[in-house]
Simulated assay, not measured.
Amino acid sequence: MVEFKLEGEFIPLIQLLKATGLVQSGGEAQTVVEDGLIKYNGQVDYRKRLKVRVGDVVDFMGQQIKVI
Rank of each mutant, 00 (worst) to 15 (best):
R47T: 12
A29M: 13
Q24C: 05
D59T: 04
V33H: 04
I38K: 14
D35E: 09
L17W: 05
G55E: 14
D45S: 15
Q43V: 15
V32H: 13
T31F: 01
L22K: 14
L13Y: 01
F4L: 04
D35W: 13
Q24V: 02
G21M: 12
V23W: 01
G36H: 12
S25P: 05
K39A: 10
A19C: 13
F60I: 09
K66H: 11
V33P: 00
L17Q: 12
L6P: 13
I68H: 12
T31H: 06
V32K: 07
V57R: 10
I65L: 05
G26P: 13
V52N: 05
D56Q: 07
Q63R: 06
Q64N: 08
T31S: 11
R47I: 09
V33E: 11
L13S: 09
T20L: 11
I11Y: 05
Y46M: 05
I65D: 07
Q15E: 13
L13N: 09
L17D: 07
V67T: 12
R47M: 03
V57D: 04
E3K: 14
D56W: 09
D56E: 04
L16N: 10
Y40W: 09
Q64K: 07
D59F: 15
Y40H: 14
V54F: 08
V67K: 06
K51Q: 01
G42T: 00
V33A: 01
Q43R: 09
Q30L: 04
Q15C: 05
V23G: 03
